[in-house]
Amino acid sequence: MLKLIAEHNEEAQGLDAIRQLPGVMLVDCQAEDAGALQDAALLARLEDALQRIEADAACRLIVFHGLGLARGTAAGLPELRLYGKREQLLQRFRELAPPSVALVDGVCSGIHFEIALGADACLASERSSFAVPELAQGHLPGMGVFRLARQIGLRQARRLLLLNGVVDAYTALAQGLADTVCPAASFAQQVAAIAAHTASNSMVATQLGRRLLEESYASAYEDSVGHFLAAQHRCYARLPGAAQ
C-alpha cells in the first residue's frame, strides 16, 4: 500500500512539473476502469482538450498522460457507434500543429494504444506493455490495424496482432512502438527535454513536415515534389527577408 501511495505521489508531482512547462498542454486520458476506457465520456474529454488546444496559440507541445491500465484488467467492448467519433477525434489531434508525446504507464490497449500510435513520440515506463487483445474478444481493434504495419513493419505487426497480442516495454522500444523506456518518475524530465528542443521550431513547418511524412507512404515522388514546393512556399512566406 505504501509503495502504491509513493508511486501515486511521484506521478502527481511529475504532472505538476510538466504542467508548469511553458507552452505544454496536458491531455488527461485516464480511465477509472476498463469500461471507462471505451466510454463516450472519454471521447468527450478528448474533444474538450482538442478545442482548448485549437484555441491556444501559445501551445507548443501536447502531452497525453494516463495511458495504461493495471495488469489483468480487460477493456470492455466499445459501442460500435463510437468508432467513427473516436477516429475523427484522433485524426484531428494528428493534424494539429504542436507535436505530441504519449506517456504510457501500464497495459496500453484500446484507444490508449491508438493515441500512443498517433503521437509523435511515446515514452513508456519499464512496467508498461502494449496489447492488442481485440481478436481474442471477437472483434477488430480501431484504425491501429491500419497504422500498425506502417509504424513497425508488416511482419512485426502481424505477429503482434495475429499471434501474440502483447509486447513488453523493451520489445516495444525495439519495434518502434515506444521511443524511450524509463521509470515513470522521470517522465517530467524527459518531457522537459523535448519541450526545450522543440521550443523554437516553427509550428507551421512542423505541421507541414508531419503532413509530408504521412503522405510519403501513399504519394508518388512526382506528386510529393509538388506538395513539398507548395509547403516550402508557405514556410518562406512567413520568414522575414526570405526570397520567394
Results as ranks from 00 to 15, higher is better:
residue 1 M to G: 14
residue 7 E to D: 13
residue 9 N to W: 15
residue 9 N to K: 15
residue 17 A to Y: 07
residue 18 I to M: 12
residue 18 I to A: 06
residue 21 L to R: 09
residue 22 P to C: 06
residue 23 G to T: 09
residue 24 V to W: 05
residue 25 M to I: 02
residue 26 L to F: 04
residue 28 D to S: 10
residue 29 C to A: 15
residue 29 C to M: 14
residue 31 A to L: 08
residue 40 A to G: 03
residue 41 A to M: 06
residue 42 L to D: 13
residue 43 L to I: 07
residue 43 L to Y: 10
residue 44 A to C: 15
residue 48 D to I: 08
residue 51 Q to R: 15
residue 52 R to G: 01
residue 56 D to E: 04
residue 57 A to G: 03
residue 66 G to L: 00
residue 66 G to H: 00
residue 68 G to V: 01
residue 77 L to M: 12
residue 80 L to G: 06
residue 85 K to H: 07
residue 86 R to Y: 05
residue 90 L to P: 03
residue 90 L to W: 00
residue 93 F to R: 03
residue 94 R to V: 11
residue 96 L to R: 06
residue 96 L to D: 09
residue 96 L to I: 08
residue 96 L to M: 06
residue 97 A to W: 02
residue 97 A to N: 13
residue 98 P to R: 00
residue 98 P to Y: 00
residue 100 S to I: 05
residue 101 V to T: 07
residue 102 A to K: 02
residue 103 L to T: 03
residue 106 G to E: 07
residue 107 V to T: 13
residue 108 C to S: 06
residue 110 G to Q: 02
residue 112 H to A: 15
residue 113 F to A: 05
residue 116 A to G: 05
residue 117 L to R: 08
residue 121 A to H: 12
residue 123 L to K: 03
residue 124 A to K: 07
residue 125 S to T: 08
residue 127 R to I: 10
residue 129 S to A: 14
residue 131 A to H: 01
residue 132 V to F: 00
residue 133 P to L: 01
residue 138 G to S: 11
residue 140 L to V: 11
residue 141 P to N: 05
residue 143 M to N: 13
residue 146 F to I: 11
residue 147 R to D: 13
residue 149 A to E: 13
residue 150 R to F: 11
residue 150 R to S: 13
residue 154 L to C: 08
residue 155 R to F: 05
residue 164 N to P: 02
residue 165 G to M: 03
residue 168 D to V: 10
residue 169 A to W: 02
residue 172 A to H: 11
residue 172 A to V: 07
residue 174 A to E: 14
residue 177 L to Q: 04
residue 180 T to V: 06
residue 182 C to H: 08
residue 182 C to I: 13
residue 185 A to Y: 01
residue 186 S to A: 09
residue 188 A to V: 05
residue 190 Q to G: 05
residue 191 V to F: 12
residue 192 A to R: 03
residue 194 I to C: 06
residue 195 A to W: 05
residue 195 A to N: 00
residue 201 N to E: 14
residue 202 S to M: 01
residue 204 V to P: 09
residue 210 R to M: 08
residue 210 R to A: 10
residue 211 R to Q: 08
residue 214 E to H: 02
residue 214 E to M: 11
residue 221 Y to M: 12
residue 221 Y to S: 14
residue 221 Y to T: 07
residue 223 D to V: 05
residue 225 V to F: 05
residue 227 H to Y: 09
residue 234 R to Q: 14
